[in-house]
């Protein structure tokens, strides 16, 4: 286990290194780092100073070491627009994005699991066919357009929910959170739902397939032979079995959710990392882009690592329960 963990950690570190190299090459070798990293409004003296500080007068491999050293110290450059360290800028916006992504993940489970369960238990009922068709639609619908339609119906036409922003927030641990206030929650509802649309479909499909497979297992028939109530069989024996793969996939998808929040945050003007990066791209605030890229890569690798470790903990059982 320890060996596995060490090897996995080393692999992760390797990927981070490779990605940092890719980002570095993107910025320094393909683009013009002076143009990318130094504000176009800077005067000559400022430029000189920045070139020195970033080591742009050094050979490429030395530049990479400087870049890497700076990155390790948490220095990923300063935003041209906000004139703040890019890293802090992004970390400031991170709680909003995390909040949204977690909300979307929970929504996907809360909505997707019961629907998938129903569709799996009664595969031939018209309601199940409707659920399945809905999930196919969920895969096809362009998220941003659904977001617009949500705003149109619930904010503009009905006026039930606020269309944009985070609403009232509460500060905990130095970070601002929306989900603790009524107003914040009202603001979060539509974006979270919008972001979860794809995941709801995914959970429905996984759950439905899992239920149908599990219902055929001998242990379900044995549970019936024990005289258990149908409710206990469904909610304990079947449900617990499908929960593991569903939660694993949803966990793996968490990174994708954070990535896709770029779209949802833009639609609902949700002030998170995603909105920040789109704004930064539009005004060519490149240090923020570089920092965002590095942080996202780090997040992805961490998520993959966590899922891998969790899975390896479950692995002996998984291997044994497989077809014997």
């Amino acid at each position: 286990m320890t060996v596995f963990l060490l090897r996995r950690l080393l692999q992760a570190a390797g990927v981070v290194l490779v990605m940092s190299l890719l980002v570095f090459l993107g910025v320094y070798a393909i683009g013009d780092p002076i143009e990318i990293l130094i504000s176009p409004e800077a005067d000559q003296i400022e430029r000189e100073r920045a070139i020195k500080a970033l080591g742009l007068d050094l050979p490429l491999w030395q530049q990479y070491l400087v870049f890497l050293g700076n990155a390790l110290r948490g220095d990923l450059g300063r935003s041209f627009v906000f004139n703040e360290p890019a890293l802090r800028l992004i970390l400031d916006r991170m709680p909003a994005t995390l909040e949204l992504a977690i909300g979307a993940t929970l929504a996907a489970l809360i909505i997707g699991l019961p629907l998938g369960l129903y569709a799996g238990l009664r595969p031939s009922s018209p309601v199940s066919k409707g659920i399945l068709a809905g999930s196919i639609l969920g895969f096809s619908l362009p998220t941003f357009w659904v977001g617009l339609m949500l705003i149109m119906v619930f904010a503009v036409q009905l006026g039930w929910l606020p269309s944009t922003g985070r609403g009232e927030t509460v500060t905990i641990l130095g970070m601002r959170w929306s989900f603790l206030t009524r107003d914040g929650l009202a603001h979060m509802l539509m974006p979270a739902l919008n972001l979860s649309l794809f995941k709801i479909s995914l959970v429905i499909r996984l759950t439905r397939a899992g239920v149908r497979e599990t219902m055929l297992m001998d242990y379900v028939k044995f549970a019936r032979a024990k005289g258990l109530s149908p409710a206990r069989i469904t909610f304990i024996h079947v449900f617990k079995n499908i929960l593991i793969p569903v939660v694993t996939v949803v966990g793996l998808e968490f990174g994708g959710t954070i990535a896709f929040s770029v779209v949802t945050e833009s639609v609902f003007a949700w002030p998170g990392m995603g909105k920040l990066i789109i704004d930064s791209i539009n005004v060519l605030d490149r240090p923020v882009m570089v920092a965002y890229l590095m942080i996202i890569v780090l997040m992805f690798i961490t998520i993959n690592l966590l899922v891998d470790i969790t899975y390896s903990l479950l692995d002996p059982r998984v291997r044994l329960e497989g077809k014997s």
């Binding site: 242990y219 019936r224 024990k226 304990i236 024996h237 079995n241 059982r317």
Partner: peptide, 23 residues
């Protein structure tokens, strides 16, 4: 259902498959 597992019980063929692996 009230009789099953109570007055009439059953033992299955493959013991590897009859117990729920996650419980």
């Amino acid at each position: 259902r009230k009789l099953r597992g109570n007055r009439i019980a059953m033992i299955f063929q493959d013991p590897m498959m009859t117990l729920n692996p996650v419980l």
